[in-house]
Amino acid sequence: MTHDPGYNFAYLDEGTKRMVRRAVLKAVSVPGHQVPFGAREMPLPYGWGTGGIQVTASILGPQDTLKVIDQGADDTTNAVSIRRFFSRVAGVRTTTRTRDATVIQTRHRIPEMPLREGQVLVYQVPMPEPLFRLEPRLSETRRMHALADYGLMHVKLYEDIARHGHVSTAYNYPVMVANRYLMSPSPIPAFDNPKMDNMPALQLFGAGREKKIYAVPPYTRVRSLDFEDHPFRPHRADAACAFCGARDSYLDEVVCDDRGGRMFICSDTDHCETRQEAAR
């Protein structure tokens, strides 16, 4: 396949790619630290994955195979549009198979299948600052990161426990990276947090509107914040997938009618299809 000759390979001009690449390298060398970068306008609105797309465009090469997921699914609007965008402007192979992909751009999920070395996971991040609900001033949060002063977040978790008996955060659950930086894992479900720990694949995070890039290198300690007497517990709906019967995957609840009917299905469509094929 070839790319649309009206655009530079992978849409971005080479100067922009170099700028993003330098930011990515600095992000990798300081795991969890948010590196500012000059996010460009992309041919889709902020909030639709402009940060992830710029990171993907800067690392992508003709030998790569790209997979794009939106909430785990390969067949939703955002995933289909971004996949088509890259097959047009970069002419790369695309796939829905997690195992065949070398670059996986994701919105709000980590695939169920464990990732391996040689794969890169690119997250679309709406809000990179984990402390922004607690401290709105970026000048202050920057200082808190500099001092590794994350007491505010511990107090928030403590207040959750005092009020509800458990931490009331089901997604975007804050993590400590390499015992130094507090990091937002992007709005993935807390269920996915343990997959980030010691992952053999490289994880890159791009926030286009907020103009930040950060990273978790392979085999890096990623710990979800918790307390000794209230350990972190990932939540999962207590059901089996209606299609493949999986009891260990993350489930979406689907309302089927207006009489209270509902079913649970795997959020990761590739995982679900692979299991259904194997069962047939």
Binding site: N8, F9, E14, K17, R18, R21, V24, L25, V28, S29, S58, I59, L60, G61, P62, L202, A215, P217, P218
Partner: peptide, 19 residues
Amino acid sequence: DPVFQAQASFRAVLEAMSR
């Protein structure tokens, strides 16, 4: 070939930096 050779070099540097 500035586009593809720069990309290949970058991926090597990124791989080196992340491992």
